[in-house]
């Protein structure tokens, strides 16, 4: 029992990261109507700037800041492509574009970072935060979950109570109409892309030491992130948060059971399958076509 608990708690850092990435995906979808497959890749780019600077001997915290800035910039760059050329495109075209961009980013990333070559990723927050039922809970896990919860609260408040938030929601559905109402669509969209870029970068910096930090593995963390977002049906931030954390816990537990531990990256697939089959009961016709 205790072993299972230990391994479940070990999955908390991952859970927090999935949750944060998932909440960012929902945020992006609700505000700029893009299901973003490049989410994790954007954060990975920033993380590798940190790794490069750290390996070159720069002090760690300035490198972290530089990495987050780089992640923000990559986010804004992708946001620019999406708003400039695909502002009025259909949701599935936009998703297809981000898939294509993901292919490109991973290829560039692998090239620049030397492929599967292992990197020395510093652990930013080593050590344990507290003990719970005899199990160490790491600072990293507390931090990722805290960050995800913070983002969830802020996103919820922002969208439901502020005027800018309401404006942005209007913009997701009808960018052109929002533009005509005098909303600065381009600027606000880029703000969304930059902000999610910064948050995902930070989340990935925390989880990177736990994974084999190569560009592709980290970029593909978008899969559990989107699975979490699906749990929230791309609407609810709180359910996405919960979905991400549970996903991490289940993965953690699965890794302690020898017979299934090898297959634990199949868990997001099972979650996606279950959520979709369940959520289909009602949806009937696609957006008024």
């Amino acid at each position: 029992m205790n072993a299972l608990l230990t391994s479940a708690v070990a999955g908390l850092t991952a859970g927090g990261t999935y949750a944060l990435l998932g909440v960012c995906a929902v945020f992006t979808y609700r505000l700029v109507a893009v299901v973003n497959f490049t989410g994790a890749a954007i954060g990975t780019a920033g993380t590798f700037v940190l790794i490069a600077l750290y390996e070159a001997g720069f002090p760690i915290w300035p490198s972290v800041v530089a990495g987050i800035a780089a992640g923000t910039m990559v986010g804004v760059a992708i946001g620019t492509i999406m708003t400039r050329w695909f502002g009025e495109a259909s949701a599935s075209t936009k998703a297809a574009v981000t898939v294509a961009l993901l292919v490109g980013i991973i290829a560039i990333g692998l090239r620049l970072t030397g492929g599967q070559h292992p990197h020395n990723m510093p652990e930013l927050f080593p050590g344990s935060a507290f003990r719970m039922a005899g199990v160490e809970v790491t600072i990293a896990s507390v931090l990722t979950i805290g960050l995800a919860a913070l983002f969830t609260v802020l996103a919820d408040l922002f969208l439901n109570t502020t005027k800018v938030g309401l404006n942005l929601r209007a913009l997701a559905d009808r960018p052109m109409a929002a533009e005509l109402l005098g909303i600065r669509v381009q600027l606000l969209s880029l703000l969304v892309w930059g902000m999610t870029g910064a948050f995902t970068t930070f989340a990935l910096m925390i989880i990177a030491p736990q994974r084999s930090p190569n560009f592709m593995t980290l970029s593909l963390l978008v899969v559990p992130a989107l699975a979490a977002a699906l749990v929230g049906l791309f609407r609810s931030f709180w359910r996405t948060l919960a979905g991400g954390i549970v996903l991490g816990l289940v993965e953690g537990m699965a890794s302690s059971v020898d017979s299934i531990s090898q297959y634990r990256s199949a868990i997001p697939f099972l979650v996606v399958l279950a959520v979709l089959l369940w959520s289909q009961r009602e949806a009937r016709w696609d957006e008024a076509r």
């Binding site: 299901v35 497959f37 949701a91 599935s92 998703a95 297809a96 898939v99 593909l220 978008v222 899969v223 989107l226 699975a227 699906l230 090898q262 297959y263 634990r264 990256s265 199949a266 997001p268 697939f269 099972l270 996606v272 399958l273 979709l276 089959l277 289909q280 949806a283 009937r284 696609d286």
Partner: peptide, 28 residues
């Protein structure tokens, strides 16, 4: 099946997560 009633994007997520799952199965 999961993409029957809802369009493209969900299928994208299902297929990508299946590809990930299949990757690990093949690797073992």
């Amino acid at each position: 099946l999961p993409a029957l009633r809802l369009r493209g994007i969900n299928l994208a997520i299902v297929t990508l997560s299946f590809a990930t799952a299949f990757d690990t199965i093949l690797a073992t």
